[in-house]
Design a protein around this nucleic acid. Structure first.
Lengths: 150, 150
DNA sequence: GTCAATCAGGATAGAATTATCCTTTTCAAT
DNA sequence: ATTGAAAAGGATAATTCTATCCTGATTGAC
């Protein structure tokens, strides 16, 4: 309803990495398998997250991806600016190219406060918080529970 | 950010019709010109709105589209169910196929109340209300103001 | 009945998004 | 050095969404 698949994959992957021991590179193929998303496609997304300075990547043996220092405090809004592009915050619900307080669509006045709440939530939720929620076991990142490892 | 172009066109067109004198069929080509959207594409959307029982269509000379009786009280949610398909209300923010109170993504708990606010707004806004807002001159349906007719 | 204007609907095209494939580069272990 | 495993990145394919085109059916005016 709101986010592109690309954004969803990006967020899922980042949260997953945030749940893993920091400093140990996580393989793209592991992430894709865990999240059950196409790994070649995810690889492209990972690249752009590297370019967006959220991740480090390491090639070769012992390669993989790690969060950059401080990236645990990245909020969803920052991620979405990378994946959806700048200015996704300015979209008019009804699709007008310009829709501001000065010249507005008929939904503008009532939509604006709700949109602000949405953005506030996206800004408040960080990878750290979300990863903690997942690690606690109360929430999950994937559709199916994973096999327990012995 | 939220709605497909198809949904935006549909809502715009319906509001526009609701601003016109009832009973007088409105031409697809007039609507498209007014809204500045592709008329052949809009025609397809109009067809589906007819099938969804929101509009009557009339062929031939004096043809066009009219709101069905009572359709002024249609709310945006009803329109979106036609254009986005049933079940667009159930989408998980992070893209999980199932995400409910029982088994939830880490955004679920905080997202749910906001989503409910969004839906409440969409349900509260009817074509009638939106058309009135446009007719008042305070809000507009299109990017550019239209030439005043003498 | 003829004509012009309109919607209905099928076929097709274009664009954007999502997904796959393959080659190159990098790196650590040996 | 060689090898194997990994990301980088370019090319391409598949799918979905948006848009266009064309033919046929319907209707009112004449």
């Amino acid at each position: 309803m709101i986010l592109s698949r690309t954004s969803q994959y990006a967020i899922q992957a980042l949260i997953y990495i945030a749940t893993q021991p920091p400093g140990e590179p996580v393989l793209n193929r592991k992430i894709a398998a865990y999240l059950n998303v196409p790994s070649a496609y995810l690889a492209k997304i990972m690249q752009s997250l590297c370019k967006g300075n959220l991740l480090y990547s390491f090639r070769g043996r012992l390669g993989g991806f790690c969060l950059r220092e401080g990236a645990e405090s990245t909020d969803l809004m920052q991620i979405l600016i990378l994946t959806e592009g700048q200015g996704f915050t300015e979209d008019c619900l009804l699709g007008l190219k310009v829709c501001s307080d000065a010249t507005a669509c008929p939904m503008h006045a009532k939509w604006k406060p709700i949109k602000q709440k949405v953005f506030a939530l996206l800004t408040e939720q960080t990878l750290e918080k979300l990863a903690t929620a997942v690690v606690s076991g109360k929430y999950r990142l994937t559709d199916l529970p994973h096999a327990v490892l012995f």
